[in-house]
Each structure stands twice: as C-alpha cells, then as structure tokens.
Amino acid sequence: MSVVFSRTKGLTEAETHYCPGCTHGIAHRLVGEALEELDLLGNTIGCSAVGCSILSYNYINVDMIECLHGRAPAVATGIKRVRPDSIVFTYQGDGDLASIGTAEIVHAAHRGENITVVFVNNAIYGMTGGQMAPTTLAGQKVTTAPAGRNPVINGMPLKVSEMLAQIPGAAYVERVSLHSPKEIRKAKRAIKKGLTCQVEKRGFSLIEVLSTCPTGWGLSPVDAVAWLEANMVPYYPLGVLKAPEGGKNV
C-alpha cells in the first residue's frame, strides 16, 4: 500500500487551537507544504500576528517571532535587512493587516521589502469575538454592526490586494480561496510562487487567502465554505493582481 498523504514536515505535531472547520488549519498546511517542497524550512523565519493565528508558531515548523497588532511587516523588515538571505514571511489576518496595520503593510510593499505575506481574509475579527473588520461585507452581520455592515456609516469593504498591487515595490500579488479542493491546490501554488519570488529576490509578495470563520459567522463549517464562495468570491475576485516581472497580469 502506498502512502498518498501524510503530515508535512512543515507542521509540528501540536494539535491546533482553531475552531472545528476553521480554514486557518488548511492555510497553515499550505504554508508548511510550500516551505517543505521548496526546501526552505531550515532557512525561514516567520512572523506571527495578533489574531486567531498568533499561535501559528506552535504549528509551523520554522523559527518564528510574535508581533504586535499590525506590525508584522515592520518586524519582517528588521529581520530581512539583517539577514537578506533568510526567507521571511508574515502570516496575518484581515483585522491585523487591513485595519491597524495598514501603514506597515503599505510601506513594506512601498519599499519593495523582499518578504512574503500570507494574508488570511475571513471578513471578521475572529479572536476578539466577531467584530467588524474593514473587509466585512456590506450587510454582513457582526457584533459591532448588529444590523449588518452599513456602507453609509462604515464604508464599503476594503480591497487591500487591489490597493497594494498598485504599488511599484509590490512584485507579486494574488488572491486565492480555500472553498474547494481545486482552489486549495491553486492557493498552494500561489504561496509557492510568492516564496519563489522571494528566493529570486524580486521584492514584495502577498497572497490573500479567502478563508472561513464558522464561529464568527455563526455557520456550520460546510455552510461557511458555501457562504465564502457565494458572497466573498464575487466581491473579492480571485486571480493574479500583479505578476512578477516576466509573468502575466490578469
């Protein structure tokens, strides 16, 4: 009998604290597999960010540093400027990256920092209990917009990747989703591409990963995946927003 699937060396043996059905687990696995397959685990330093994924250092099998809310791209800058040959990535949620950390992410891209950002967008603050994020969809009910996000009061959800793709220093920006096995495979390819971009010293790369938060959304894991596909994907279209030089924009 041949083994067709096993735990990647990119993940530790630790059991995760994520809610049942949360796609953070899948995103972690993709990061772990991508690092393992590119043989980068031993030379990588990761930056975890405030939010549900702050403990990602317990699960991803690389040296890691925990960062203050929103500041991971600045911390990654400090690391990378001392160790330009290390692979440096941040793993940030949407509350962290798209709200409190906008200055840090914009300027990391602006400087063309040669780092890779895994940006997990689940349209809500998960860890603090389901508050509105800049990425929360119009009409989506959250604890701090109980009647649903009202664009008149709160504005329309922020499309961070589109914004960052405009910055000259950003070499590669792609949005992927975790709502089906096919999309998950594409997501892994994108993460590998981002890391490769860094290995080749092309500059800033960011992969936005549309993800579920069944707990915050008040849905079963299965319904959450369907909700993601039906509601998030139309507003946050998937695909390459900025291709590394020599590649092709869509």
């Binding site: 930056c47 960062c67 203050l68 500041r71 600045a74 911390v75 990654a76 400027r81 001392v82 840090e104």
Partner: peptide, 25 residues
C-alpha cells in the same frame, strides 16, 4: 543598513525584528 521607516511605530518594530536576529541596532 540605514532605513527610514514610515513612522516611529514602524521604526521600533523594525528594531524588534533586527534585535531578534542578533545584530546591534
């Protein structure tokens, strides 16, 4: 290396990253 940060908040967090990998910063 000299880097002009986007803000003092950025600067102090870059310090944190650089110190964590062991350089005098």
């Amino acid at each position: 290396v000299f880097i002009q940060a986007e803000s003092e908040i950025g600067a102090v967090n870059m310090l944190y990253g650089a110190a964590a990998v062991g350089c005098r910063v």
